Amino acid sequence: MNKKALITGVTGQDGSYLAELLIDKGYQVFGLVRRSSTSNLERISHLFDHIQILCGDLLDQSSLMDVITDSQPDEIYNLASQSYVPLSWTQPALTAEYTALGVSRLLESIRRCKSDAKFYQASSSEVFGQPEESPQTERTAFRPRNPYGVAKAYAHWMTVNYRQKYNLYSCCGITYTHESPRRGTEFVFRKITHAAAQIKLGLANELKLGNLDARRDWCYAKDAVYAMWLMLQQEKADDYIIASGETHSVKELVECAFNCVGLDWQDYVSVDYAFYRPDESVQLVGSIDKIKTELGWQPEYSFKQLVELMVDYDLKKLTNNRA
C-alpha cells in the first residue's frame, strides 16, 4: 500500500518541491491550504491531478484534527509559516500565531488523532540569531534576534518536547537559506537573478542592494526537501541542520549572476543603506557533518550551478512574457 503524506504550506516553494518528490516516490499526497479570497496555487497547478487539497488552518485546532483524521497520513511535513523576516517585525503577533502556536496545535492534533505519524517541523537558522560560534551545529545555543526566529525557536522546542514526552516521531530540520526559481523576488537571491535577467533584456537598468559583504549559506530547495524526506525514513527521530556548509557574499552572488548574462555588475548595482541588516559579527553557516555522516546527505547543486539555474529560468520566463 502506498504511503500517505500531509504537507502544510504545500503552495510554497518547499511544499511544491516536496510534493513533486513524494509523488515521484509513489505517495498519496494531501496538501493543507487555507481558504482565502485569492488563489495562491500557482506553484502546484501542475500537480492538481496528483494532490488532494484539504482546507484547514494552523490557527484552528479543530480543522487540523479533522484533516488528520480524514487523511490518516503516515508522514506530516509542516512547512507552513509566516516566513518573511522583515514582516515579522510589523506583524509579530500574527507571526507567533502561525509560526509558533500553529505548531503546538498541529503537534497536539497529531498526538490525539494519529500518534504513529512521523512529523517533520521546518526549523530555521534564524533560531541561532547572533550565534557564539561558527559554523553552527545541532548543539549551538539558540539566540534569535527577530520575532520570526523567536517563533521558530518555540516551534523547535515544542517539537523536541513532544518527542520526549509523548514518544512521537517528531523531528526538526534546521534549514539555512535555500533558493529556487519558485522563490519570491523579495528575497535577495531571487531579487538578484531576476534583476540580472531584466537588465540583460532591457527591462530594467539598475539594481539597489544592501551590504554586499554580507555572507549567507545558500543551497537549492530541491536538495533541502530531499533531506526533509530522508529524515522521516529513519528508525529514530532526530534533528539535523540542512545547509550547504559554506558561505558566499552578496557581492559574489551579484558577480556570478551578471557573468551569466555577460554584463559587468558594477555598471548596474548600487548600494542602498535602507536594505542593510543589523551588524552580523558571526556568520550564519551550518555544519552538515551530522546529516552527512548519519543520513548520507549533502547538496548536489553547487552555488555556481544554483545561480546559473535561476538566471537561466528568469531569462526564459521574462522572454516568454514579452513574446
Rank of each mutant, 00 (worst) to 15 (best):
Q136H: 08
D279T: 11
F303V: 13
K236L: 14
A204D: 15
E235W: 00
K290I: 10
Y27R: 12
Q234A: 09
N161P: 09
L101G: 05
I44R: 03
V285A: 12
Y273E: 15
Q130S: 13
K200T: 04
F48G: 11
S180F: 00
M228N: 11
A323G: 12
I288H: 01
M310D: 14
Q82F: 05
I23P: 03
P147M: 06
D314I: 03
A19G: 02
L64R: 05
V10Y: 00
S83G: 10
G296C: 08
Y120L: 14
Q266H: 10
L18Q: 02
W265V: 12
E108H: 11
Q305M: 03
S63R: 02
S109T: 02
N167Y: 09
D24T: 09
S244D: 13
G286Y: 00
T293R: 12
S45F: 06
L309T: 15
R43P: 12
S281W: 11
P278L: 08
A243F: 04
V250K: 05
E235R: 14
L295K: 04
K290C: 05
D60Y: 03
E252C: 07
T11A: 04
K191E: 12
P144H: 04
T140F: 00
I199A: 02
G12W: 07
L207Q: 03
Y276Q: 10
E308S: 06
N146Q: 08
E133N: 08
K4A: 08
W218T: 13
R216A: 06
S63P: 07
S63C: 02
N146W: 00
D289A: 13
S37V: 13
T69C: 11
M158R: 03
E186C: 03
M158K: 04
R215T: 15
D116A: 07
Y17E: 15
F189W: 05
E20W: 01
L209D: 11
D312P: 07
R139N: 14
G9L: 05
G173H: 04
P181I: 05
H178S: 14
V271S: 06
S302Q: 07
P278W: 04
I51D: 01
N40C: 10
D223E: 13
T38S: 11
F142M: 14
G26C: 02
E308W: 00
